[in-house]
Amino acid sequence: MRSRDFDPGGGGAAPWVFVSPLIAFALIFFVVPLGFSVYLSFTRWNPLGTPSWVGLKQFEYLLTRDDAFWRSVGNTFVFAFGFVALGVPLSLGLAFVFSRSRGKAVWRSIYYLPQLTNIVAIAYLWQFVLDDRYGIINRALGLTGLRGPDWLTDPVMAMVSVVLVMIWYDAGKNMLVFSAALEAVDSEIYDAATLDGAGAWRTLRSVTLPMIRPAFIFVTITSFITGMGFFALILAMTGGGPRGATEVTALYTYTMAFEDLRMGRASAGALILFVIIGVLSLLQFRALRERERRT
């Protein structure tokens, strides 16, 4: 054991030892891949050969000639926006009822089930449930005399379906984040508001929502980032179909890379998507923070 003077902050080499795996990982699996990705986006590369430098050609092709790329960007927006706009209020609403109910352990287990399930199983389970003719939903609708939609074969409905399944998958997790925030609100504040003569609605708007604002910002932005980059569900559930109607950009670049072996163009596509996500998240964050400051 070394003897030395007491040092209030440092611990000699110890902190560096503790963070050494972090640093090594950050270099090998964060910095180098990002650099490599940028390099690749300036090349044409079928990985069974060697990369050839093509400058900005891949970006030019994607942005000016590739209709499928733009369609995929549009689909990405629809998916992410649908996921946030429907999913976040829904989980907030569920959190309100959940946080005031009995038997929380049971509800929590049930609502958390999808989060425990692998995405392949989720995709296939819903394929069975949503089958046009023999899925349980359309069978049930048929019994009541209604014609159920073509959930997965109609292009518009297919997008609706993947958004709904994504919400189903994530609702439980966000509900728990919101309910944690709700429970952290001091009950004395409610008492005070009630004494003050504030009605339920006013209490909600003026006390509860501002108090859970950090949770709201957190959930909205993480959901948005997740929605823009998530493609495992779509890959397994619709494969991007029918006719490309659910092909989001992340899926498009993935298949470009690992099916058509166009690594350069795929890297360029992924970088474009990343820049879009980065800019939009920043704007969103600013907007949400800004409102908070005004209040």
């Binding site: 046009d132 003719r133 359309n138 609708l141 048929g142 005399g145 209604l146 159920g148 494969g239």
Partner: peptide, 18 residues
């Protein structure tokens, strides 16, 4: 077709392979 206009027995069908 059934009452909701959904095909019950199909006359001809294509394969929907991936």
């Amino acid at each position: 077709r059934n009452a909701q206009g959904r095909t019950e027995t199909a006359g001809f069908a294509f394969g929907q392979s991936s």
